[in-house]
Every structure is written in structure tokens, then in C-alpha cells.
Nucleic acid binder design. Structure first.
Lengths: 65, 65
DNA sequence: ACCGAATGTCAGGTCAACCTGACATTTCTC
DNA sequence: GAGAAATGTCAGGTTGACCTGACATTCGGT
């Protein structure tokens, strides 16, 4: 699923480890999300959206319409 | 995670099987979601939101912030 | 009260989304 | 160019979100 995670992280000047810590996930999980090998759980998607202060749909593109 | 799935389904007059078919998931998956034993994947959450025509956050309550 | 439809539950399986730890490669800074 | 930091990759493990199939219970219509 296409997403804006790397863009948002870099805009904050955070490392992948920084982001992982703030989201309470591993660095490898951040890599997998940024490289679009994993979709986040809904709960993690909500944590990400809250952290960046934008709606989930602005970070993870809804592939259904 | 608290959600409005049962309310929305019943408002449409659909059975759990009807909803499962429209979402391409099993009837048992619908039961698990309605009874809040499972959170949906982000992709399924998007399918649900698109089916009912409302934002994801209106169906599944964001527990963060 | 009966019957069928709807709902709920249980057992057992698969797979993707997480995890840790280790190592390789790339990029930044001096 | 050397060292450190950041990024990427791999192996192997756990768990929850799905699956099917079977059976039990509850509800609605006649």
C-alpha cells in the first residue's frame, strides 16, 4: 500500500530508529513500512497518524476508491 | 477497539453473511470484528469504510489522542 | 410449537505483521 | 580516508487476523 511515511519522517529530521521509538515498534518494522513491504495494523496506523497529526488516509492511500 | 460495525450493518438490514460477502471475508471474521475480539487490517478497514461511505475513524475509534 | 434463518462458538490451519539479533552497505562528518 | 551513524538485509521466532468446517443456540414467521 502506497504511503508517505518516509517523506513525513524525513520532514521531521528523524532517523528510522527515532520513529520506531516514538511509535513503539522496531527499526526493522519502520523499514518494512517505508519500503511498502508491510501494511501497518489499524492500531499502528492510528499511532502514526496521531504522531504526525494528519489523517490516516493522508499517509496510507486507500486503494478502494 | 470500539467500533460501530454492528450498528452500520443492522442499519442496512444486512446479515453477518451478507456483510462478509460484500467485504470478501468470512462470517466468523465479521463476528470477531463486531464483538471486538479482532481489529481489522488497515486494508479491510478501508474496504469497510468504502462500503459504508464513511471515514474509517467514524467506524473504528482511534484510541490514540 | 415448529422450522428455517441468523447468530454464536469451537477446533485447527495459514500467513502477514510484528519481534530480536547479527551482519553488510551506504552516508555523513571530521 | 577513517570512523561513526544511518540504512538495509537476513535468519528465525511469536502472535493475531484471517480461513474452513462443524455444531449449538437464538430468533422470526407461519
Amino acid at each position: 500500500m502506497k504511503n508517505q511515511l518516509r517523506t513525513l519522517r524525513q520532514a521531521r529530521g528523524w532517523t528510522q530508529q527515532d520513529l520506531g521509538t516514538r511509535l513503539a515498534v522496531s527499526r526493522q518494522a519502520v523499514i518494512a513500512l517505508e519500503s511498502e513491504r508491510h501494511d501497518p495494523s489499524l492500531d499502528l496506523a492510528y499511532r502514526i497518524a496521531s504522531l504526525f497529526g494528519v489523517p490516516v488516509e493522508e499517509i496510507f492511500e486507500n486503494p478502494h476508491r
